[in-house]
Structures are given as C-alpha cells and as structure tokens.
Design a protein around this nucleic acid. Structure first.
Length: 357
DNA sequence: AACGAGGCCAACCGCCAGGGC
DNA sequence: TGCCCTGGCGGTTGGCCTCGT
C-alpha cells in the first residue's frame, strides 16, 4: 500500500507541536471526539496531517497519560511482557495504563535494553549470553592453571577420575566447537580450540597433583556431570546454534522452527524438558558458579547468584500464565503480593540491580 | 565559558491489516 | 476479487538537553 495519503499533502506543518496547536487539538477532540483522523485537521483548523494529530493525541494530549519516570513495578511488567511478546509495544502498553507504546518503546531502547546488555543478558531472548565455549572454558583453563601453582600431591582415585572426566569434557567441547563453526573458519577455530583443549588436558594433569575437588565436592560431581551433559547434546543451549550456516550444513530442523515459543529461539528449553538433562544442566551451571567463586572472576556478576535454573529461562517459560493472567500485576505491591515480584528470580536479578541505581 | 559526545524522547516514516466499496 | 482508505504499529530520526573535558 505504501505511504498513507494523508501525509502527502504539501505545506502541512511538521515537527514539534506548539501550545496553540495543542490547545486546538485538545479542544476539538473534547468537543467532538476525534472521529476520522484524516478529516480532523481541517475540521479543527490545524495545518497538520491526520496521522500527526493522532500521534500527538495518543502520545501526549490524552488526559489519561501518566507522566514521570517508570516505577520499578512498571519496569518489571515491561520486562516480563517483552520476554513474552517481544517488540509488541502496543500490546505491552495495554498492560500499563497511562503509558503509551511510544513511551514504553523509548524507555526500553534507552534504559532497559542497555541494562540487560550490561548485565550480560540478550535483550532479544532475555537469556544470559551463555557462550559456554568462550566463557566457562576459559574459566576452566584459568582454574586449571591456578592448580599448577599449588604444591603437588600424590595421585589418588578421585584425581584420576577427575582427569578422565575433564579429558572427556575437553574432547566433547572440541567436537561441538567443530560442529558449530562454519566450514570456512572451522580450521582456524579448531586450531584455537585445540590449543584451549590442550590447555585443559595439560591443566587437568595438574589436578592430579592437587585436588581442589576434595575441598569442594560440588566441583567434583559437576565436572563429571558436565562431561555427561555435553555428550548428551545439551550443547544446544549455545547461542551459535542459531547460525543458519550451522543448520544448513548439518541439515537440522531445530525445535524453534517447529513447536517452541518464538521467544525461545534455540532449544535449551527442549533439553530442560528432560529431568535428567535439567539436573545435569543445573550442575553444569553450578560448576560455572563454583569456578567463579574459586577465581573471584571479574565477570562473576555476569553469572550472578542464581539459585535455580529457571533464572536462565525467560519468564515466558516459567511465568507465562502469570503474565497472561496479570490482570493487574501491580495490585499486589512490591512487598509481596505481585506474582512477578514474589515468584520470579529473573525479576529479583534485574530489579536487584535496578535498586542499586 | 566553550565545545563535543552521548542520552533522551517527541515526532516522523514506511509498512501492514482490516474494512468498505 | 481487487482496489482504496484509514488506523495502527514498529523502527528510525533529529533536535534538545546534560554532562564531561
């Protein structure tokens, strides 16, 4: 269809509205209603196009417009709804009385999106940027290198088992990394990964000298479970799987093209539907946390202090009904009644950060 | 005080869907 | 059935403001 005819008229004023124009528009609509927006400017004595009048009314002059900054409850609602609806600003606006889609869109683009990015979340998927190969792998290496600095100890069974598990993990990572690389860059990347896995291999030999796992049983179990995790294909939660090249080259039809919600474009969810995988994934994530703890990693904030795997799932997965049924999400108040504030660890993370600002 | 960079936000642009003819 | 008109939507822009140097 192209451009709306009402905007094609020459000589129509554009740009910021004067107070006089505002008064004309306001008075006219209060007396006659807006009726046809196309004919309104002429009837109201305005040298504007209908679309401009409509926009001015909806975004600024409407009497029920709420002014001022967004409350934490409103921010929380936007976050939840965006995780479910995406950039459907008008739909989100219907859940926020007094707020316009334009206002919400602006607020998202200028505040919430940046904050999510800063916190290590993907503003589109609302999930942590979980590049396990670059982040946890490097952390593993760093942890392993640390072990080299520690005095050696005699070998024992648990150390040997750990070495085996770590080697398996390294091999799995190498294999998966190879799968994830587009053919053109596969060689170079694999070389890079090889150096990384070699580090792991070398480093895990260091583990045989000193066994920090004995000090932290969690690390022991999670390392082995992580190896199992990758061998079972949980690597699907790595974002590069979105790469069309990968799909094309491996003739895969990912779940997100068939039956998973659009807000979960890659199927971490699918794996999590399986209890065993979920448990293993939880342990894997705990490993990352554990390593963070050991290393006092500078990006530990990125990984956060999540207590439950649900944190990695968008609210659409865990709270779809809560959002859908949120007749008034704010009615419960921030002190406990609101479903989102009381049940969503996601909001705890996000608004914990917000509170600090 | 002057200037530039970056942020914010009102407004515009272009496209789409639905209804009427 | 197809075209046109209109309302509505999401993305983008540009001007103003603030802040740092």
């Amino acid at each position: 269809m192209g451009r709306s005819p009402c905007c094609e008229g020459n000589g129509l004023k554009k740009g910021p509205w004067s107070s006089e124009e505002d008064k004309k528009l306001l008075d006219f609509i209060q007396q006659h209603g807006h009726g046809s927006w196309i004919s309104l400017p002429k009837r109201a004595g305005l040298n504007r196009c209908g679309k401009s009048c409509r926009l001015r009314w909806i975004n600024y002059l409407r009497p029920d417009i709420k002014r001022g900054s967004f409350s934490p409850e409103e921010e929380q609602t936007i976050l939840h709804l965006h995780s479910v609806l995406g950039n459907k600003w008008s739909a989100i606006a219907t859940r926020l009385p007094g707020r316009t889609d334009n206002e919400i869109k602006n607020y998202w683009n200028t505040h919430l999106k940046k904050k999510l990015i800063r916190m290590g979340f993907d503003p589109v998927t609302h999930r942590r940027r979980t590049d396990v190969f670059s982040s946890s792998l490097s952390q593993l290496i760093a942890l392993a290198n640390l072990s080299k600095l520690i005095d050696s100890r005699p070998l024992d069974e648990s150390a040997l088992a750990l070495q085996s598990d770590a080697l398996q993990l390294a091999n799995s990572l190498q294999y998966l990394q190879g799968l994830l690389q587009p053919p053109a860059s596969a060689t170079a990347s694999n070389n890079n990964l090889f150096s990384q896995t070699s580090c792991i291999t070398e480093a895990t030999q260091g583990y045989t000298a000193y066994d920090p796992i004995k000090e932290d049983p969690d690390l022991n179990s999670l390392l082995s479970s992580t190896a199992r995790l990758f061998s079972e294909g949980i690597a699907s939660f790595s974002q590069p799987l979105q790469d069309n090249n990968f799909i094309a080259h491996h003739h895969l039809v990912p779940n997100y093209l068939t039956n998973t919600p659009p807000q979960v474009p890659f199927s971490f969810q699918t794996s999590l539907n399986n209890h065993v995988d979920r448990t293993a994934a939880t342990q894997c994530l705990s490993m990352v946390n554990g390593i963070d703890h050991c290393l006092d990693s500078t990006d530990s904030a990125l990984w956060g202090d999540y207590d439950d795997l649900d944190l990695l799932l968008p609210p659409s997965l865990t709270e779809a009904s809560a959002v859908t049924d949120r007749g008034d999400a704010r009615s419960g108040g921030s002190s406990g009644g609101s479903p989102s504030s009381s049940t969503s660890p996601w909001s705890d993370i996000f608004f914990g950060d917000l509170a600090g600002h």
